[in-house]
């Protein structure tokens, strides 16, 4: 705009013109507004860039939030799953512990027809000695036969 104003304003005569002041006035070409070159083709990429930046930013935010939220959802559902699995694990653990407790082992063994052994006896491999008195399981424990009185 300022360029156009400059062209229109009656500029003060340059000093060089003053020297020729006596001469007949030179013909001046009529001045007209130079049409501004409409540069719509140049602005389009800029606009596109801005819009795409905005859209991209928005989309990015959206994606980021979605991802974060999805992670939160995933975390939540994993926690729920963890809870369920922990419950199952502990349930099974309790079952195992109960099954291997001495009284349930004894009950199972009795069910299978097993009986408790009597006093132990040992076979010493080195010399084939039997240590202790072997007693068949389930038989009454024999009275001690020793007489050690004098």
């Amino acid at each position: 705009m300022s360029a156009a104003v400059d062209v229109l304003s009656p500029a003060p005569a340059p000093p060089r013109r003053r020297k020729d002041a006596a001469g007949p006035p030179r013909w001046r070409a009529p001045l007209a507004l130079v049409p501004l070159e409409s540069d719509s083709s140049g602005r389009a990429p800029f606009l596109a860039a801005v819009v795409s930046l905005l859209v991209g930013g928005l989309l990015g935010l959206l994606v980021l939030n979605t991802v974060l939220a999805r992670d939160a959802f995933a975390l939540h559902s994993l926690k729920v799953e963890d809870r369920v699995l922990t419950d199952r694990e502990q349930g099974l653990q309790r079952e195992v512990e109960a099954l291997r407790s001495p009284q349930s082992l004894a009950a199972r063994a009795t069910q299978m027809g097993m009986i408790s052994a009597g006093p132990p006896a040992f076979l010493r491999l080195a010399d084939g000695t039997v240590l202790g008195t072997p007693v068949a399981g389930g038989e009454p424990i024999p009275a001690v036969p020793r007489v050690r009185k004098r």
Partner: peptide, 26 residues
């Protein structure tokens, strides 16, 4: 006797094999 037998058995404690000495009571 029952608890001791069970313990000797489960802990695998063998008898020494030595005989009891004669005790004089009177």
């Amino acid at each position: 006797r029952d608890i001791m037998s069970f313990a000797l058995r489960s802990m695998r404690i063998p008898p020494t094999g030595a005989a009891s000495p004669l005790l004089r009571l009177r």
